[in-house]
């Protein structure tokens, strides 16, 4: 009887120890959940701010387009048709702006989507499963080599002063942080660019195991690529460039 009683005592003690452990762990997890609730509130707040900023951006861009057209119309209004020299300068300015990537453009092209490996695990997957600045630069170069005339990455126009580089887990383009998926829009000879992409060994390899980078493209007629978004910074972008006045031999 004493033996049975002792056995029961030991069993109860063991059960109590286990339940104490589980209760303590449960308490810790409940606290963590409370922290997560705070995190979710912060995330919701940040997401709301981002949506507001995106709406504000659309409004600013629309205003800019209207004013840009207004200025162009105004110049054509003040310059008389017979002032051919001035009209030529104005047309030449428009052409230079187009070459520099400062106008919205439209044409047949491709939309490429690149993304990290789905469910990337930093402990299991190779680093190549993540999209880096060099992957994007490589693609831009490949497209340029195949006749691309206008390129944007996540709707940021690639111009002469564009810098594309990694900061931590994100990539910067035109001083703007970008997160995957990266959408590259390109206007150029569609068929030639398509053939080049299909034949590219680097991206073929990256799509295979173990990298499994997600990559796809679509051919789009009348694709619109937006102008460089901050022409106001051009003065800074060319701050140290002095025009060469003497002839270069």
């Amino acid at each position: 009887m004493t033996h049975k009683y002792r056995l029961l005592q030991i069993s109860i003690s063991l059960i109590l120890i286990i339940s104490g452990f589980i209760l303590a762990r449960h308490f810790i997890l409940v606290r963590a959940e409370l922290d997560n609730t705070v995190n979710i509130a912060e995330i919701q707040k940040a997401q709301q701010e981002l949506t507001e900023l995106e709406n504000e951006r659309d409004k600013i861009e629309l205003e800019y387009q209207i004013m840009r057209k207004e200025l162009s119309d105004l110049w054509h209004e003040v310059i008389a048709d017979d002032e051919t020299q001035e009209v030529d300068i104005l047309n030449s300015l428009e052409d230079t702006r187009k070459k520099a990537g400062l106008t919205d453009v439209k044409g047949h092209g491709l939309v490429l989507t690149i993304n990290d490996k789905e469910g990337y695990d930093p402990y299991e997957d190779p680093i190549e499963s993540l999209i880096h600045d060099q992957n994007i630069i490589y693609l831009i170069d490949l497209l340029a080599d195949n006749g691309a005339q206008a390129i944007s990455v996540n709707d940021l126009r690639v111009v002469n002063s564009s810098k594309i580089f990694c900061i931590g887990t994100t990539i910067l383009c035109n001083k703007q942080r970008m997160s995957p998926p990266y959408i590259i829009k390109v206007i150029g000879p569609q068929e030639q660019m398509k053939i080049a992409l299909d034949a590219d060994p680097v991206y073929s390899k990256l799509q295979e195991a173990p990298y499994l980078v997600r990559f796809s493209y679509q051919m789009i007629p009348d694709l619109i690529i937006k102008a460089y978004e901050t022409p106001g910074t051009i003065e800074k972008d060319i701050e140290f460039l002095n025009p060469v006045t003497e002839s270069i031999n």
């Binding site: 300068i89 030449s92 300015l93 230079t96 702006r97 070459k99 520099a100 400062l102 111009v159 002469n160 002063s161 051009i234 003065e235 972008d237 060319i238 140290f240 460039l241 002095n242 025009p243 060469v244 270069i248």
Partner: peptide, 15 residues
């Protein structure tokens, strides 16, 4: 136009 030409790479520059 001069400013845009420098930005576009249509003007030789030095420094």
């Amino acid at each position: 136009k001069e400013k845009m030409a420098i930005f576009a790479g249509l003007t030789a520059v030095q420094n």
